[in-house]
Amino acid sequence: MFEVGRDHIIVDSPGGPAGVSEQVWEVQEMEGTLLKLCNPFAKAPEILNIASSRFVKAVLLDKRQARPA
Rank of each mutant, 00 (worst) to 15 (best):
E46N: 06
E3G: 07
K63W: 13
V11M: 14
A66W: 10
K43R: 08
I50W: 04
K57N: 05
D7V: 07
E31W: 06
D7Q: 02
L37E: 04
E26G: 02
A69L: 10
S21R: 14
E29V: 09
R64Y: 07
D7E: 09
A18P: 03
K57A: 04
A69I: 06
E29W: 05
P14E: 12
F55I: 14
R67L: 10
P68R: 06
A66D: 14
L60I: 08
G19E: 04
D62S: 08
G16E: 10
A66T: 14
A51Y: 07
Q65D: 14
K43Y: 07
A69F: 07
D7A: 00
A51S: 13
K63R: 13
A51T: 04
I10E: 02
R64P: 02
V24Y: 01
S13F: 08
M30Q: 15
R6V: 12
V11S: 13
P45I: 03
S21H: 12
A69M: 02
V20T: 15
D62R: 09
W25T: 05
V4F: 05
E26H: 03
P40L: 10
W25Q: 11
P68A: 07
A51F: 00
W25E: 05
D7G: 03
S53E: 11
V20N: 04
I9V: 15
Q23C: 00
M30Y: 02
A42T: 04
V56R: 15
L48R: 12
S53C: 01
Q65E: 15
D7N: 08
E31T: 07
S13T: 11
R54G: 06
E46L: 09
E26W: 07
W25L: 10
P17L: 12
M30C: 07
F2S: 02
